[in-house]
């Protein structure tokens, strides 16, 4: 399981509100909460009172013959109806603001797959598992999924939207605080069986977490300019991080054990037998091709299920991955 930031709870019911929308949702929440409490008391106080007062003291008590009152039926039909109409509009308001992103919002594409999130910025920068956004600027997320339905949920932002394969859905937010927040998947998407030994690798629905890092505008620009990568760390180390964050480890083991895909242990220089009968020697070109066009050379005995990473990984990231894979002796 990825380490996820704690959800900040600052009231009995709700997490701390850290987006512009959260305030609106919370107002609606409070209105419906107090309405419910009032109605609950309205129902339960008489119930409790009647249950005590009208206990049977002796057999054969004569009970009231009043069996209806049109007036009172009309009253308790129309008053709740009026309250409900109001509640509908109370609920509608924050929702409309949640659904219509301001023009000029920073547009980020979100791709969900079992069991990780990746975020693609307009300049092509791709960040896996970590959504970096500027504070105080509207950010519009366009979601899709490559396998099953997932759902993007940030409790402190009060936003949620399913990521559906074959469909684009969207939502937007504007963060109001500089901090790290947890993204949760709320649409059930299964579990790997068995789980990878390494517990840091997401293994199922409840591990499909990501982090939203809200930075101030300057820091965000800096981050984006470097493509989200820290060039000072050695490539192999960056590759290791990429290997984990892109979910490669879900299918490729590092210890030689068999999984959905071939193991990465002793990969470099190995002779692989392909599905078409030919063999290939694993070198940089083969690795690059397999990452970008997995369908090109399918290793015998493994299903062709790997998605392409073309357009998601930058060349420098592919290089980093290759550097990491070369070290897996």
């Amino acid at each position: 399981m990825m380490t996820a930031p704690k959800i900040d709870i600052d009231s009995f019911w709700l997490p701390k509100a850290t987006s512009t929308l959260a305030g609106q949702v919370d107002s609606a929440w409070n209105i419906v909460l107090y309405t419910c409490i009032v109605f609950f008391l309205l129902l339960m106080v008489p119930t409790g009172y009647f249950l005590m007062k009208y206990r049977r003291k002796k057999e054969g008590e004569v009970t009231s013959a009043i069996d209806h009152s049109t007036t009172i039926e009309v009253v308790w039909t129309t008053i709740p109806l009026g309250v409900l109409v109001v509640l509908f509009f109370v609920g509608l308001t924050p929702w409309v603001s949640a659904k219509v992103a301001p023009a000029g919002a920073l547009e980020i594409n979100v791709t969900a797959k079992k069991w990780n999130w990746s975020f693609q910025y307009p300049d092509g920068t791709v960040s896996a598992g970590k959504l970096i956004v500027p504070k105080g600027k509207p950010v519009k997320l366009t979601l899709s999924s490559v396998d099953v339905i997932h759902s993007f949920y940030v409790p402190e932002f009060r936003i949620k939207q399913d990521a559906v394969p074959g469909l684009y859905t969207s939502l937007w937010f504007e963060a109001t605080e500089i901090k790290d927040l947890t993204v949760l998947c709320t649409e059930y998407c299964g579990n790997a069986d068995p789980c990878p030994k390494d517990e840091s690798i997401p293994c199922g629905h409840s591990d499909m977490l990501a982090t939203v890092s809200v930075l101030d505008e300057t820091k965000f620009k800096e981050w984006l300019e470097t493509g989200g990568e820290d060039k000072s760390t050695p490539p192999a180390e960056r590759g290791k991080a990429l290997f984990a964050s892109w979910g490669c480890a879900t299918c490729h083991s590092l210890d030689g054990s068999k999984a959905t895909g071939p193991t990465m242990k002793g990969l470099f220089g190995r002779k692989e037998e392909l599905a078409d009968g030919s063999t290939v020697s694993v070198d940089e070109n083969y690795l690059r091709e397999s990452i970008l066009v997995p369908t090109a050379k399918q290793v015998k005995g493994f299903p062709l299920v790997m998605p392409t990473f073309q357009g998601q990984l930058k060349p420098s990231q592919v290089d980093a991955l290759i550097a990491f894979l070369k070290e897996q002796k």
Binding site: N109, T111, D123, G124, T142, S144, P307, T308, G311, Q312
Partner: peptide
């Protein structure tokens, strides 16, 4: 389906034209 944001959308194409994907030469 394996990469919903690649290639397909006109927006994406326009984006790719502006900023070639993965091009290290682009300085932002």
């Amino acid at each position: 389906m394996s990469n919903p944001f690649l290639g397909g959308s006109a927006r994406q194409k326009a984006m790719n034209a502006l900023y070639p994907v993965g091009s290290n030469s682009v300085k932002l």
